[in-house]
Simulated assay, not measured.
Amino acid sequence: MFAFRTAALVAATLTTGLIAGVFYAYATSVMTALGQSDDRTFIDIMQKINVVIINPWFMLGFMGTVGFTVLAAALHLGKDSRTTLIWIGVALLLNIIAFAVTSGLNVPLNNQLANAGDVGQIGDLAAVRAQFETSWVRWNVVRAVLHTLAFLVLTGGLFAAGMQHARAGAAAQAAPVVPAASAWPFPVQPGFGSAQR
């Protein structure tokens, strides 16, 4: 059971860290570089990014931030894992909020940009960019911070789970060994069964 719990917690931590890293990269490099480009380049690149990022590897990580954290929480239900469950619960809340920011705010902005049409057919590039860029960048920073906090909390949960497992192992080793009761219901007398002399 410990192996399954640990695997789920590691998966939750890994996917959360990966997605936090993706959004961190957007905030610290991608959007900064695109911010220095002209309107046509900005819109063209963002439209292409929003298409190619919908791939199995990204979606596994993105959905895993909530899915694996829910699984880890379910496997840590019970008194023996209460401390670890608290850490996981906090991380789950942060991941759900970040997921909601992406789904409810960033994705609609992506769709809005896609619906503007091909960059060569857009009449007012500056207006399309203005309706997208500031809000998208702001909400990307919010989700990056939330996922990063969730990653830190899950790391704390891994540490708590390891300490709890170590304490349980130490307690089991320190427990006195009680000899098993004999299956023979009567006391064995000295010389019983030996040849009579």
Rank of each mutant, 00 (worst) to 15 (best):
L109E: 05
L34W: 06
R82V: 12
T148Y: 02
S29T: 12
W136L: 05
G61W: 06
L94Y: 02
N110R: 00
V52G: 02
A144C: 13
Q131L: 04
L158I: 11
L71G: 02
L125H: 07
I97Y: 02
T134K: 13
W57L: 14
A91S: 01
H76E: 06
I86D: 10
L77Q: 15
V101N: 03
T69I: 10
D118K: 13
V128C: 03
W87V: 04
G104S: 07
S29H: 14
L60M: 09
I54M: 15
T155V: 07
H76Y: 03
H76T: 11
Q47I: 06
D118H: 03
N111Q: 15
V52K: 01
L93K: 01
T155Y: 07
P108L: 06
F132T: 06
F99M: 15
A98K: 12
N50E: 04
T65V: 10
L149A: 04
Q47M: 06
A73N: 10
L92D: 11
D38I: 08
T84Y: 08
I45M: 00
D44L: 05
N140L: 01
R82A: 11
V66A: 05
T84R: 00
M63N: 11
D39H: 07
N111H: 14
R82P: 09
G67A: 13
P56E: 06
A100E: 05
G117W: 04
V66C: 01
G61R: 13
G67C: 11
G157P: 10
A91P: 00
F68H: 09
F42N: 04
W139M: 10
T65I: 06
S81F: 15
L92A: 10
